[in-house]
Amino acid sequence: MELFNENSKLAQVILKDHTLLPVINRLGLKLGFGDSTIQQLCKKEGIDVTFFVEIINVFHNENYFSEKKLLDFSVTTVIDYLLKTHRNYVDYVIPEQERLIDLFLSNCTTGCKENELVRKFNKKFTEEFIKHIQLEEIEIFPYVINLNEVIGNPSKKAAFMDQYKNFTIKGFEKEHNNMDEKMFDLKNIIIKYLQPNYDQNIGNSLLSNLFIFEKDLKNHSRIEDKILVPKVKQLEKIVKKDE
């Protein structure tokens, strides 16, 4: 398993694994970084370099997950990253997928009624996904940010306890489902079951998009489940210890 570190040149990292491109964008970096190392680039942009390295390693190696290290980051850093990822999904990845599906269906010759189900399936996924994101952004993340503020400023505790009387992260942990599952399914449906009566090149673009999106969603959920949730549990313990 290959791991990147703060002294890796970012251009080399990208040349090795270009699927990291959207990830480094969300972390706050743009292309054109010459021979600079991750350390140099993060310093210049004011990005937490350890967090940067951990996230790209999580994405690059499916089996890599240094929960210990990731638990050291502040929840605000984690949430900031998660929010940027949500924006990227809503503003780019989902519309791009819709565009590819439209294109994919526009070339259909026979059996198009079946192929149209791809659009319906994707639409249902998108609706669920937007709800999923909204729940996190409207309920969960504000709770975590408020909780975190209490740690830094105990005078806010009373108001916090009042607002979130019976709220714990456990509820979210239980309900939080894997949105990557549907992308996995759509990928398999196209590869295995749909009649190939569409332009193969467009089909390939759509599939590439699905592969990337599925992987991205999987890692996104991993960060929420394996970093955010345990981190919040820690904070809850501290804040609620004398209740």
Partner: peptide, 28 residues
């Protein structure tokens, strides 16, 4: 099948002609 979600399995059943597509097109 390689399909995990309920709606994925619905689509699979339609493509395998195990259920009628018209039953699905108008449903949720």
């Amino acid at each position: 099948t390689g399909i995990k979600s309920a709606s994925g399995l619905t689509m699979y059943a339609v493509l395998k002609k195990l259920i009628d597509i018209d039953e699905i097109s108008t449903s949720d």
